[in-house]
Design a protein around this nucleic acid. Structure first.
Lengths: 332, 332
DNA sequence: GAGCCGTGGGAGATCGATCTCCCACACTGT
DNA sequence: ACAGTGTGGGAGATCGATCTCCCACGGCTC
């Protein structure tokens, strides 16, 4: 009743464990085709599965990549993890996803757990630009680590991110072209590099006295709070740029309940282009990340030489996706 | 530069590997407090981490539970995975989540991969009541497997699910009490046990000639298709029960664009009580699963004796969550 | 026909932590 | 003083797959 081992397969096929291993693991070594067939046949008949722990112990490699995201409650990170999973699976590996619950402490624990010999390398979307650096740096000394979508100061490793400044320019230019010039920013989570960069790019473009609403976290609830504040100041504003889709969702919902027409009176944009945006009324204009390209690059860096992982930030070009929330004809 | 091993810690502390292991793994054996301190001190100083593969190989246990869900694109399954993760983590374990991409074939592969010695037990939310059974049965012979949220025929193992019939009765009674009697069902994915049970319960209550819209899958896009069909038949209907929240979201969005007031003309209910429902306008009435209780029970079955895992279905009581989409005063 | 070489296959070591003995030593009671 | 008892600690075996040798054998050259 116990699981069959390689030894059992070898015995059934009348060969040694070494030969059975060569056949089943595909070691680069010629084996008599007839013996190979016998081994494969025996393995199938016995229902043999190679023991992952034993192989990992011997080879020192697990074929698994880990990714730690700030929170799976944010659908953007689900999409992000999925994009990575597809790349990993295409390369014959497996992906393990961990949730840091938006806490640098839990993030450090998750990194610690995964590095206990469970993964060959780690992608991290750091919770905080300041507070995540130390744990990442420590991890990067023990295994390949690449930051994804966000960077962290003092991480000691490379980051594959979006060009947030370019993205902000795309949004502002789009709104300006529509004749919307009184633009407010709803920004959240300045502790993260993406939150901070988006805020900085907005301020750089519109000046420090432009209307901004700062919120602690990227959640829909924060978006609703922002909605109330913007509704109060509706006279000063004809467009709102949100630092994340989840914010835009909460914002639009609250504006509509406050009888502020979107986009009639106020145009709204999101950030991240999560799938849910198309389903809202109105669908929301947003910024799309080239996640597949970013994932491919991040995995290449992870598996490549350590010398390519010096602390620096690689930025990928964003893409503007226009939807009804910034309709050209709606401006009063 | 190579990672420190237990041997190194033992040497640094001046004890044998056995003693070091007893201290660090917490084996039930008294060790001189002074030695224990020396070992822990040495481990900390060297930055020792126990090698997961080696421990797993020796003990035959990984401390990891796997869960295979139909699709992480459906936020309900993200919530479900999260509820399980919390329970697992509280018990000191780790959870690995796999996505079956709504395909029984991929589902079988994921199960196969996870069972290669990576997990101690597996929770599966089967894609299909008919097509998932075989793979689950095979898996259940090799490791503890418990079905979650859905069951599969011929699985050979226990399932922890919601009482879908009771949930449907809660919804129908609620709508009846509001004076809505011309109720339509939007059902999807009859291949899954939950889809089939919800449809069956509706038909049992309202008769086979009640309005039903059948869709292939639980997606928002399917919900929009349903919205168009319902809008065409608006004269025959004053309430729509959706078999999943994602359907309700797409449906409401489409009804509103077709100028059908919700809940003014048509009340709408969802199913699963995902978090996004509160953010819509109107927020949607739904059915809440007692996920924490279900997860706790499922894990207890997973770790308990195999005799408790005979093929049967355990059902948990649903809870009705009333929101504005079935507002009592809105009925024309 | 003797020595070489290339090729396929097997015996045994190995990865690192844990577990099973078994031993040494101190302490107790008679 | 000695046998009995209990307690802490160490040597070596073990988990299962892979890797490193090394051997056997058939074909080759000269």
């Amino acid at each position: 009743m116990t699981a069959p081992r390689l030894l059992d397969v070898a015995a059934a096929a009348g060969v040694s464990r070494a030969t059975a291993s060569r056949v089943l693991a595909g070691t680069p070594r010629n084996v008599d085709p007839d013996l190979a067939r016998r081994v494969e046949e025996a393995a199938r008949r016995l229902g043999y599965r190679t023991n992952h722990s034993a192989r990992a112990l011997r080879t020192g490699t697990t074929g698994t990549v880990g990714v730690v995201v700030p929170s799976l409650a944010n659908p953007y990170f689900v999409q992000l993890a999925d994009a990575i999973a597809q790349q990993v699976r295409a390369a014959g590996g497996q992906l393990v996803v961990s949730d840091a619950a938006n806490s640098p402490t839990i993030e450090a624990e998750q990194i610690e757990t995964l590095l206990g010999g469970r993964v060959d390398g780690l992608l991290v979307v750091p919770v905080s630009a300041a507070a995540s650096g130390a744990a990442v740096r420590a991890a990067a000394k023990r295994a390949p680590v690449v930051l994804f979508d966000r960077w962290a100061r003092g991480s000691g490793t490379v980051a594959v991110t979006l060009d947030n400044a370019a993205a902000m320019r795309l949004l502002l230019d789009h709104l300006d072209a529509l004749g919307r010039h009184r633009i407010a920013l709803v920004a959240a989570d300045q502790a993260s590099s993406s939150g901070a960069e988006r805020l900085a790019a907005f301020t750089a473009a519109r000046g420090a006295d432009a209307t901004t609403v700062l919120l602690p976290s990227f959640t829909t609830d924060a978006g609703r709070t922002a909605g109330r504040r913007i509704a109060e100041r509706r006279a000063e504003v004809d467009a709102v740029v949100c630092g994340a889709d989840v914010l835009a969702v909460g914002l639009v919902s609250t504006l509509q309940r406050s009888a502020v027409p979107v986009p009639g009176e106020i145009a709204v944009t999101g950030f991240d282009d999560t799938e849910m945006l198309e389903l809202l009324d109105p669908p929301i204009t947003s910024i799309r990340h080239p996640l597949a390209d970013m994932a491919e690059r991040a995995l290449a860096l992870l598996q490549g030489p350590a010398a390519d992982r010096t602390e620096q930030v690689e930025r990928f070009a964003p893409q503007l996706v226009v939807r009804a929330s910034t309709d050209a004809d709606a401006h009063a």
